[in-house]
């Protein structure tokens, strides 16, 4: 942990904490969305950013989590937040089943297959699979979450709930990145033949990256279901996955990059509402231009260093400062 990273996170935390005092309910709601997309993109980042697996079906895991929550809550009366771990487990189990046979596919093929999966999930939800998902209309009447006897209903309540969740996620994912697991994923991303050669069980690590990312996306689905109180298959279309993918890629794959990406892709369009129809056009163009001029994304992860000579540490420390300032600006 460098000083710059701590300060930049402290800066973000302070801004996030006081922001609702300055915002009307509409904008608070926008920031709730930014928070939700941040967590989803952070969970996708394990798969796409850390392990380098082109996964464009994240909305499928998110959908499984949201539907597990909605079904548990409306049919069996399980309190929403109690459903959260089950939503996570449901999504993780689903990921384990669908990812196992496709994990060995090369880059772009994995991408296409994951698109196929997200579409199959959406069609299954529309066709009211198992008679549980309510067809094209979805499920409504999901109750508000209760936390220690306090009912979370207003946008500002959700704001703090979601951003506290974002903070927990970042904290945990940072630990994960530096763990044996995280290092193994990075090795696989850089060169999976070499990783395999050094005794890293690549297939197993890739699968666990999927399962973990899905678990977190599933839990985020719970909060989404609780916030919307109504969910339908159209909320989990292919485009949600594209947006999440773009957040991670344009953000650059670091945790702060993901936050910045979520802000730019979800928050910024709200400032240009009068150009609403043209904003996707600009979004597509930005993706092309970004790949030509800065393919590593806005805030790529800093190079790791573990007990390197003093000279090298100074150089990377400087790089960290510049990145931290950009992150603090978001």
């Amino acid at each position: 942990m460098t000083v710059s990273r701590t300060t930049s996170y402290a800066g973000i935390a302070v801004v996030v904490a006081v922001l609702p005092l300055l915002l009307d309910p509409y904008w608070t709601d926008v920031f709730v969305s930014i928070g939700l997309y941040s967590v989803l993109a952070l969970s996708l980042n394990i798969i796409l950013g850390q392990a380098g697996l082109f996964h464009m079906g994240h909305a499928a895991f998110y959908a499984v989590g949201a539907y597990v929550t909605a079904i548990a809550n409306t049919m069996w009366g399980v309190p929403v937040l109690w459903a959260m771990p089950f939503a996570g487990l449901g999504a993780a189990l689903f990921a384990m089943v669908v990812a196992r046979p496709i994990i060995h596919l090369r880059g772009d093929y994995l991408l296409i297959v994951t698109i196929g999966i997200v579409e199959i999930v959406r069609i299954a939800l529309i066709n009211n699979v198992f008679g549980l998902t309510g067809g094209a209309n979805g499920i409504f009447g999901i109750s508000r979450p209760m936390l220690f006897g306090f009912k979370i209903a207003k946008p500002v309540h959700f704001y703090y709930l979601v951003w506290a969740y974002v903070a927990c996620s970042i904290l945990l994912f940072r630990r994960l990145e530096n763990s044996r697991f995280g290092r193994a994923l990075n090795y696989i991303k850089e060169d999976d033949t070499a990783a395999e050669g050094s005794g890293v069980n690549t297939a197993s690590y890739k699968l666990w990256a999927f399962v973990l990312g899905a678990f977190w996306a599933g839990m985020t689905g719970t909060i989404y279901a609780a916030k919307m109180t109504i969910i339908s298959p159209e909320s989990f279309s292919f485009w949600e996955s594209v947006v999440l993918f773009a957040i991670v890629i344009l953000g650059g794959g670091s945790n702060r990059g993901v936050l910045l990406g979520a802000f730019l892709l979800i928050g910024l369009p709200e400032f240009f509402r009068e150009f609403a129809s043209a904003r996707m056009l600009a979004f597509g163009l930005a993706m092309v231009v970004m790949m030509i001029f800065r393919p590593q994304g806005m805030l790529p992860p800093m190079p790791r260093f573990y007990k390197l000579p003093e000279r090298i540490r100074c150089i990377t420390g400087k790089g960290g400062d510049a990145a931290a300032q950009a992150g603090g600006g978001a």
Binding site: F54, G107, D108, L111, V242, F245, A246, I249, S277, A278, M280, L281, F283, G284, L285, A286, M287, V288, M290, M291, I292, P295
Partner: peptide
């Protein structure tokens, strides 16, 4: 063409961007 020598992922993302651009155009 500008991405001919860069990584596969860049080209894929650029292609997706072009797709979104055309669809909205």
């Amino acid at each position: 063409r500008p991405l001919r020598s860069s990584s596969r992922l860049s080209a894929v993302v650029s292609a997706l961007g072009a797709s979104i651009f055309f669809q909205n155009a």
